[in-house]
Design a protein around this nucleic acid. Structure first.
Lengths: 193, 193
DNA sequence: CCTACCGATCGGTAGG
DNA sequence: CCTACCGATCGGTAGG
């Protein structure tokens, strides 16, 4: 359906609720109530509940993809590229934790082709990590590991932020990112003595 | 309710379904169907759907706690203790990925006191990681970091395994654990040149 | 954007 | 362990 301001308000309210309670446990009436309207009124703006989920997940996926590509564009060594990729991923999460955590945790409630499409985009996204890790291994920057295992290790750690990050929390988003970049780069980097 | 073999079969079937589809998206009839009985027959063995969730989550929590305590009992240096703790955590996940992933992902659907109790046990469990990291920082084994941040980094990475691990997968549980231990210890360890 | 309402499904009970 | 059934709630439609 149309990409109106109201539509975006619906998706934002839905993101927050899906993050808190999960997609299935959130009713259409819950989303409407957050916007001070009645359940059926939502259908003037959306075609179905799953459409709202899809819009959020699709937008989050695009944001992750775009931001990662920008971060990887610079022509640096593997450690710096990894640092940039990790920081980019975290910035997407902290900029909109609702959207990000729906992408991370609720995509599996999509059905059919949409589910399949997101699965493929998730895999392609993860491949950026795998390939970068393999590059760093090949040139001796990174320790010997299984690139697929190391990539899921990192992505699980990063995506965890979507679950616990609160803008009003103890640490600012940048400080969290700094710590995570250090942890991620050290996790991969060979210790030369 | 009673701790009968049938009760355990119900919890195992429920774990697998909760892991696949989530607690809310799994109906009592779904669980019954997996055991080739009708929905209402389940209530001869359980008092409520949430009771089944609680039994699984409580058992998983106990297993994580017991296994971690055993792993930390040895009197070794922080790096070895961390390696033991990480390996222990992973062994609980790979021994029963259904139970573990329900603990990781579905506990929030518990209500009231049970939810509160699990929140506290999760925090106490995480504290084992935080304290160990702080110990290692104090004696110079570990790099300077925020122990709380580093602990969630590690636990998110480890818990991610519950989502993707399959016994018939490419890598045996032990090999996954070996890679994860290396990644985790390197992530924390100061690089001395 | 509303009220009125739909069929389907939910967790759970009664009573064997 | 079953059938029959309950009230509540679900996503969504009709018709303003």
């Amino acid at each position: 359906m149309l990409d109106t301001p109201r539509r975006r308000e619906i998706e934002d309210a839905a993101s927050a609720l899906f993050r808190e309670r999960g997609y299935v446990a959130t009713s259409v009436r819950d989303i409407a109530h957050a916007l001070d309207i009645r359940g059926p009124s939502l259908y003037a703006h959306v075609t179905s509940k799953e459409d709202v989920l899809w819009a959020i997940v699709d937008r989050a996926a695009s944001r992750f993809e775009r931001t990662a590509d920008r971060a990887l564009a610079a022509d640096a060594d593997p450690a710096d590229r990894l640092a940039a990729l990790v920081a980019a991923h975290i910035s997407v999460i902290t900029a909109d934790p609702g959207e990000a955590s729906v992408f991370v945790a609720e995509w599996r409630h999509l059905s059919g082709d949409r589910r399949q499409a997101i699965l493929e985009r998730r895999d392609a996204y993860e491949r950026r990590f795998r390939d970068l890790i393999a590059d760093g291994m090949a040139d001796g920057t990174f320790a010997l590991t299984d690139p697929a295992v190391a990539a899921t290790f990192l992505l699980s750690a990063l995506n965890g932020i979507a679950g616990w990050y609160r803008p009003e929390g103890r640490l600012a988003a940048d400080r969290i990112a700094d710590h995570f970049v250090d942890l991620a780069v050290r996790a991969l980097t060979e210790v030369h003595r």
